[in-house]
């Protein structure tokens, strides 16, 4: 999901062509075994993974902004605490994922450069603003719900460090979705003002959540390769359908409507039918023309730039301490 859509990598092999290594790699994939950091892997596999895992990491980090937006205004101390914990988890998830990406032989600084200059992306959903408190609930219920749908299969992704990071993340993620649902349930069963707030949030977040699963299968050109490599376990449309099937009944429990007149249970198919997604909007937002794209990146870049003097100071101190210890050792030897 955070990289489920068009990853845009070349599929032609680069790097050393080693027949045995390729065969070994293929056998591991076929046997559903894990590829580990020191295994030979096709260059394109490495590049695809770097892009996908990094974009997943970037999504977690950027995602801290729309939710962090409501920490100082949370309407109860309990909700404030839960929200801080959630955003903290997201920072942690970003770190696990950067850590997994780095095992592929790339530095976090390089990944951040690519995020900051737009070469790597993050999930389109975080380009939408959080305009009221209920949006925090909608993000938990819908966005995290969609994320879980994608993340559970990734726990069996072929690349070991990514799969293991996903297991860690999934353990922490279920609390997030439940909290979002709980916020909305409280609102929809509260005052008329609160119920209207909740409905407004769902009206704005429903369609963008469906878009999180990426373009329709027939337009997803690199999915076939990702599937063959065990990176992608289910197609975009399959996951999207599962999400709708899971979420539509939950909306009824919430007593909130979903903004889709074509949404209805189809007994023949055994699934919910739903309306057409505005793929033009999706394309626009991916391209950078969403409500918050510029702002999200600007704030991210600014945090990084503003922090440079701090990071440098820490490194300078570490170097000084190392030099002092070295000098002390030499002195001790000399005496």
């Amino acid at each position: 999901m955070y990289g489920n859509y068009d990853s845009g990598t070349a599929s032609s092999p680069g790097g050393p062509h080693d027949q045995d290594a390729q065969q070994r790699f293929d056998r591991l994939i076929e046997a559903d075994q894990r590829i580990e950091p020191r295994d030979w892997m096709p260059d394109a596999y490495r590049k695809t993974l770097i892009r996908q895992i990094a974009q997943h990491a970037h999504s977690e980090i950027i995602g801290m902004q729309p939710e962090g937006n409501w920490i100082t205004r949370a309407p109860s101390l309990r909700r404030k605490a839960i929200l801080i914990a959630k955003v903290q988890d997201e920072a942690g998830h970003g770190l696990y994922l950067y850590s997994a990406t780095e095992t592929l032989g790339i530095d976090r600084e390089e990944l951040l450069d690519r995020l900051h200059d737009g070469r790597q992306k993050y999930s389109s959903i975080f380009n939408y603003p959080t305009l009221n408190w209920a949006d925090v609930g909608a993000i938990g219920w819908l966005v995290d719900g969609a994320a879980i749908m994608n993340q559970v299969p990734l726990c069996r992704c072929s690349y070991g460090p990514y799969a293991r990071a996903m297991v860690r993340i999934c353990k922490e993620e279920s609390f997030h979705q439940r909290q979002g649902f709980d916020i909305l349930h409280t609102l929809s069963h509260g005052t008329p003002g609160q119920k209207a707030m909740a409905q407004d949030a769902v009206n704005r977040y429903w369609w963008p959540s469906l878009m999180m699963f990426g373009p329709p299968d027939e337009e997803s050109s690199h999915s076939a390769q990702s599937t063959a490599w065990g990176i992608k376990r289910f197609s975009n449309d399959e996951l999207r359908q599962r999400f709708v099937d899971m979420t539509a009944p939950q909306a009824e429990v919430l007593g909130l409507s979903l903004p889709d007149d074509d949404l209805r249970w189809n007994a023949e198919r055994g699934h919910y039918d739903f309306g057409a997604i505005d793929w033009d909007e999706f394309a626009r937002v991916i391209r950078g023309d969403g409500p918050c794209n510029a702002e999200r990146l600007r704030r991210r870049r600014q945090a990084h730039d503003d922090g440079e003097w701090v990071r440098e100071a820490a490194q300078a101190y570490a170097d000084k301490q190392a030099a002092r210890q070295q000098a002390a050792r030499q002195e001790a030897r000399a005496s």
Binding site: T72, Q88, G92, Q302, G307, E308
Partner: peptide, 29 residues
């Protein structure tokens, strides 16, 4: 401290400051 979330000097520091904020909030409650 809650105001620092998403723009601390390093992501590890976002975590640390959030951790302190949570502890203090718990004491406050």
């Amino acid at each position: 401290l809650g105001e620092w979330v998403a723009h601390a000097p390093q992501i590890e520091e976002d975590l640390a400051l959030a951790n302190i904020a949570l502890d203090l909030l718990g004491q406050a409650r």
